[in-house]
Design a protein around this nucleic acid. Structure first.
Lengths: 334, 334
DNA sequence: CGATCTGCCGAAAAGGTTTTCAGGAACCTA
DNA sequence: TAGGTTCCTGAAAACCTTTTCGGCAGATCG
């Protein structure tokens, strides 16, 4: 199927290309009847304007690049969806590039995106710790999402892990729990530290200590959730709530509690983190958990970027609160 | 940072734009020393060619659209990665669009992609059953992946579910199992039917019937896996292997077997489907499962598309075999 | 009736690159 | 020395659209 150009439309409508252009773009200096004729011709030919010619002249492409480092990971996807959503029915399309965690490949993709004259960039890191900046003197605005940039002059949007930890513990306290433990992942992750800090903070506010005497750092896996829970139960058999640093860990936790015939949530309440639905919703019982609200993060990133195109972006790190999703693994203590 | 154009490069190198273009594109009719000067100038100015101007003139954009209907779903991601990988270090970038299962939105995205003059399209369906064609008279080649097109004139790449079912049962037979049951998902899914057919086929070849007397269709969930296993054990307590239609279901299966103190794989072997790592690898024990090989599917889709650009594509449905991934949930019967 | 204004339309330039083609210079052959 | 090659280089057209600006026709006003 050959493509119609504006020339074809103009010819069919019996006007010049200039007029055709103005008619289709809603410019005022064209008579209603003429506009009608042009529109008619355009739809008859199934005309759609060549965005490359438009880009060339307007200096705007209506595209943004999304540079991620972990596509397989579950974090970039919701952000991507949020961004796609915000650009959505508008005229913006997104180029997706996965650097596979390789900085060479990242440079390569960056080059390609700049060559394509994207209007802006969203960079999504693989883990929630800070990552190297792409540099200061790029010709387009850049927003870092999920993983903040090391350079404070960049704008980064991250989720508020400390707040999330506080949220989880707050919920447990409200359901009447007092002996609350925290089993979480790799201590080298800033997110693990932040969540723990928030949790301890909220406990302290209530005059409580963490059950088991310490936060159990380990790995982001079900197996660690199981192992840590066994150790915890040995040291502190009367624990009445466990806040897990991820839904994976939480799955391991409920698994062992189940084995030990400690009813969830009757005896022990469990809160996960991430709201990774496949894990959280299918657990026995389904897990109360903290949702990172990544779609919102993606949406905001898109909006900020959009607003900044042509203009300038802010800088610094903005934190987005998570939200509590309650399921059956927590319930008021009777 | 202002962008350098070819004009700037040419001026700096003291040649015309025509020569600069030829030098940078490796055209032969330019003296080595001149080429060198131009390359020098280009890198000094950090020049990267405006792809829109190139697209306008060459009629090639070096972009493809990937139109998916379930981004959150786990199937489009590996395909996307495979495709990205194949285009990879080349000059092709991919536009990602998620139609959210809405055909209006799909038309809209299609329009946008055609307006951007993509060189080709990959359409990834939400479920492995056939889906409506995008139409025959599109100006670019289209490949349907995962979910085949309803129109046999289109080219579709799908995974071989029947072969997968056969593969799973074959493995169980080789480990000495004879009383093999099959618990799977929604019977309205072609994939469920195909996997079951393959499984029954391989059983028949061995002169065996399916344990429990029938294939247990139900839902793609852990809960169904649990429920079906309980029913199965009641009707057929001496079952020695269960082939689950998905890893989710398999998780439910091993869960109940564990409860019933039926050792996996000693007493009962379990095979899942999908190789959804987070589920399969973290199960107790880790699950043997069928990998759909979706990355390969994505890679092949990309290659086919690439080869077809300008030329023409084949048609029909091509099936890709899955592969068995053995973990600890199966072992030879002693 | 002449002058000014308003409303529509079209010619042309611009945006950055590739490609064709003509021409200039240097070299070789007879 | 004249004519023919071979190598390089540059001018210009083309791709498709947007936007500016000039012009023309008709209407309004004095």
């Amino acid at each position: 199927m050959e493509r119609a150009t504006l020339r074809d439309v103009a010819r069919l409508a019996g006007v010049s290309v200039a007029t055709a252009s103005k008619a289709l773009n809603g410019q005022p200096q064209v008579r209603a009847s003429t506009r009608e004729r042009v529109m008619q011709a355009a739809s008859q030919l199934d005309f759609s304007p060549n965005t490359h010619a438009q880009a060339l002249i307007t200096q705007r492409t209506g595209t943004v690049g999304l540079l991620t480092s972990d596509l397989e990971g579950r974090f970039s996807i919701p952000i991507l969806m949020g961004a796609e959503d915000a650009f959505g029915t508008g005229q913006t399309s997104v180029f997706l590039c996965d650097a596979r965690g390789d900085s060479i490949r990242e440079r390569h993709h960056l080059r390609a995106l700049l060559s394509r004259r994207v209007d802006g960039l969203i960079v999504v890191g693989a883990r929630p710790d800070s990552r190297p900046s792409l540099g200061r003197d790029l010709p387009v605005p850049v927003i870092y999402a999920y993983a903040p940039s090391e350079d404070p002059a960049d704008l980064s949007l991250v989720s508020d892990n400390e707040g999330g930890g506080r949220l989880a513990v707050d919920h447990l306290i409200r359901t009447g729990r007092r002996r609350i433990a925290h089993i979480t992942g790799d201590a080298t992750y800033g997110a693990a530290q932040d969540r723990a800090r928030g949790a301890l903070d909220r406990l302290a506010q209530e005059g409580l200590e963490v059950a088991g005497g310490e936060v159990w750092f380990g790995m982001w896996s079900e197996a660690w959730g199981r192992g840590a829970t066994r150790m915890l139960l040995e040291r502190c058999p009367d624990v009445d709530a466990i806040f897990a640093g991820s839904d994976e860990i939480a799955r391991g936790v409920v698994d062992v509690l189940h084995e030990e015939r400690l009813d969830v949530p009757e005896k022990v309440a469990v809160v996960g983190y991430d709201n990774w639905t496949i894990l959280a919703a299918n657990a026995r019982p389904p897990l109360t958990t903290i949702d990172l609200n990544l779609e919102q993060l993606g949406r905001v990133a898109a909006q900020r970027l959009f607003a900044a195109i042509g203009g300038t972006l802010g800088s610094g790190v903005e934190k987005f609160p998570g939200k509590l999703v309650t399921r059956e693994s927590t319930a008021p203590l009777r």
